[in-house]
Amino acid sequence: MQFKSHARILAIALSLALVAGCSSTGGSRDGSMDGTGTGANGGVGTGTAGSGQVSGSGISGDRSGQQADGRIPEVRTIYFDYDRDSIRPEFESVLVSHARYLRSNGNARVVLQGHTDERGTREYNLALGERRANAVKRFLEVQGVSPSQFEVVSYGEERLAARGASEDAHAQNRRVVFAY
């Protein structure tokens, strides 16, 4: 199960790289892998209004006829092994595509959202989620992306992508999401 979903992601990543390499006409398909890319502003109910910052406001790549680099890469979620924050080799191409996009779109901003599975304590998992997002951040820095273009926010186990105790559910939860 886990292998299958990773294989699919890998296939998407590879094909995306191919598209980016040989096509110059950019259709604008909007396909976030998990639908968490756009942030919902928190409507907070205590009388004192929460000042809402919307994280999904940096979308700038929808102009037709632009280079492939003008579109936000479609794969916006990468996955991690249990208790690890190292980038798995199959996701390096995904990070490279985001780095390329961010370099060529200096106004684009992204929040790197770090997540863990539900095992362990919540505050410790916030720290683990931040480690994962920081690993992506370092990768982007090495790729020459300006630090002003990204921010790390860890959600730990607070925003699970999948419920349940199966290893498949855990694997889907250990992730970093690019939220533009």
Binding site: A40, G42, V44, G45, T46, G50, E123, Y155, R159
Partner: peptide, 12 residues
């Protein structure tokens, strides 16, 4: 009794 309600996580 409700103390705080939000669309974003609350913890600790």
């Amino acid at each position: 009794q409700q103390v705080l309600n939000s669309r974003e996580p609350i913890l600790s």
